[in-house]
Amino acid sequence: MIVVDGQSNERLVLDGGWLEKLRGGRPVTRTPASSFRGAQWKDLERRVTLFGREKERLVQVTLTFDGGPFVGLIADAAKRPELEAIVDGLEAARSA
């Protein structure tokens, strides 16, 4: 099981043959991992406070599935390896 926490109290969970997105601890989407088609990555940077100079680095991943939903998550850039592990797990489930 791979779990990645993102912004806005969201979480992605890859458990066996299923990918689930949770928001506030409640399931939003549950999709079979074998229907995975691809991932799009985007690096983001935003200010921590409205007029502050300090910025935080984020990564956004959008996962696409056959005939299903797009599943997106924004997380701290440091969590990119964990998100890549989820994408690797989805690709392995697709080819199995």
Rank of each mutant, 00 (worst) to 15 (best):
R11D: 06
D5F: 07
E54L: 15
I86N: 05
A93G: 11
R46M: 02
R57A: 12
V87E: 13
G16C: 12
D5W: 00
P69C: 09
E10R: 08
P32S: 00
V59C: 10
F65N: 11
V48A: 04
E82L: 13
P27K: 03
A75M: 08
S95L: 00
V48I: 04
S35V: 07
N9A: 14
D15V: 10
S95I: 01
R47L: 03
K21M: 10
F65W: 01
D88W: 11
G72P: 06
G38N: 06
L90F: 02
I74L: 08
R57W: 08
V61A: 01
G24H: 12
Q7I: 15
A96D: 12
T31I: 02
E20V: 05
V13N: 12
V71R: 04
R53H: 02
L44T: 07
R23A: 11
V71Y: 06
S34L: 01
W41F: 02
S8H: 15
L90G: 04
K42F: 00
R57I: 06
A75S: 11
E82C: 05
D15R: 06
R80N: 12
E10M: 06
G17E: 02
K21N: 06
A33D: 09
G67E: 11
E45D: 10
I2P: 00
V13R: 13
R47V: 01
D43V: 14
R47S: 10
P69W: 08
E82I: 09
L14S: 05
R47I: 05
P81Y: 07
L90D: 10
F36Y: 09
G24E: 05
R53W: 01
G25P: 02
D76W: 05
P32T: 05
F65C: 09
S8P: 08
I2K: 13
E56A: 15
L83V: 03
G6Q: 14
V4G: 10
E54C: 12
G68F: 15
F36Q: 06
K55C: 05
E91H: 02
L22W: 12
R57V: 05
I74K: 07
F51K: 15
T49K: 09
F70L: 15
T29P: 04
L90P: 01
R47N: 14
L44Q: 13
K79Y: 04
R57L: 13
A39H: 08
K55S: 03
A93T: 00
D76M: 07
L22F: 02
G6V: 02
G38R: 01
E91I: 01
M1Y: 07
G67L: 07
A78P: 07
L63F: 01
D43F: 07
L83I: 04
G38Q: 00
R57F: 09
